[in-house]
Design a protein around this nucleic acid. Sequence first.
DNA 1: TAGATTGTTAATCGATTAACAATC
DNA 2: TAGATTGTTAATCGATTAACAATC
Lengths: 215, 215
Amino acid sequence: MEKSTISRAVIQRLPRYYRYLGELMSEGCQRISSGELSNRMHVTASQIRQDLNHFGGFGQQGYGYNVEYLYNEIGKILGLDTTHRVIIIGAGNLGTALANYPNFEKRGFLVTALFDVNPERIGQTVGDIPILPLDTLEDYLAEHPVHIATLAIPKTAAVGVAERLVACGVKAIWNFAHTDLTVPDDVVVENVHLSESLMRLSYNLSTQKKEKGTD
Amino acid sequence: MEKSTISRAVIQRLPRYYRYLGELMSEGCQRISSGELSNRMHVTASQIRQDLNHFGGFGQQGYGYNVEYLYNEIGKILGLDTTHRVIIIGAGNLGTALANYPNFEKRGFLVTALFDVNPERIGQTVGDIPILPLDTLEDYLAEHPVHIATLAIPKTAAVGVAERLVACGVKAIWNFAHTDLTVPDDVVVENVHLSESLMRLSYNLSTQKKEKGTD
DNA sequence: TAGATTGTTAATCGATTAACAATC
DNA sequence: TAGATTGTTAATCGATTAACAATC
């Protein structure tokens, strides 16, 4: 209930808190104050406390936060305490890279299948993960639970595949295609538009050069 | 000069305007009003006009915006009117995927070399692009202009390589490693933290489920 | 000219920061 | 208890939206 009121900006920051807390844990650090974390992360202590308090009081006055406890609590908030079954549509370079990514499994994201249209690729595997014909997507979804579908295909194909996924009841799409997807309200989409990221870098680089020139 | 005052939120949206204008062009559309674009993009017309006016008056009262002109102007703002020479550190799955990405060259991003430490990979090519030993990074940078360096290596290696890049005068880093980089003020970093993106999707999926349950 | 739509100012909204009382 | 640090309210800041005069 409280969750729907939490702003996008706060959610954007949560995984970064999670990453820093994980690092602190592996350094053997047991407690941390918002002030110390503020120094590490280069965000204000006030923002850290404000952000965390959206989800409840995880700290203790005069002490700070227990690193492991807070790490686990944020993990639960992010849904990392359950296993998500993931499929990847597109077994090209990007799809293969994502399937091979070892850290995902560590966080509870289990890739169970890739799908492709290329006859040479179909029947091969990536690690243990089979590459299945895209034709059989509906059959697969009818028989296997899938929580997240990853689109690593060109935008021309992405829109149609997204519709098929939604029709089969998939509720979360991780979209690497360079297009916006229109989906029902109960389906969530997270876009990774790499070319837009590169354009922002290009913009910042150009701007930086100009500043240097006029300083 | 005016550029340094433009907020991150505006820059974030520019590539998306660029993408929609490109689509309009390929549809043969010659002019568009902020109102029509608003309907397409699901942002307010007011925001579109406000955003564009940070860079100058591209429209005409009573007419709207010339699609091709605006597309080209935004391209210039994003620095897409010049060729950026790009290298990729790490010729694993992700680095290879990025090197193969055909759209980058279309936008003026030219990948000239990959670097790796794996002896099996060194000497191979990705398309026309050679895979060079990471040892020779400094030599390469001394002899070839490089505008953007892409880090597609584990975070343990990324911090050290970033320092070497900065020492050689590279001013822009596209960082896929799961770590924050500390760089001088005149170096720009664009982070692509895929695991954080996936965590946000997981959060939204969990939240969505809960809402559905209580509605 | 009249209609349409921008550029731009003013109003609103939301997010961040500061401050401090509560409390461990 | 005294010191430290949170949780939380209030103040500030910035971004978005609304409104409308300017103008094509």
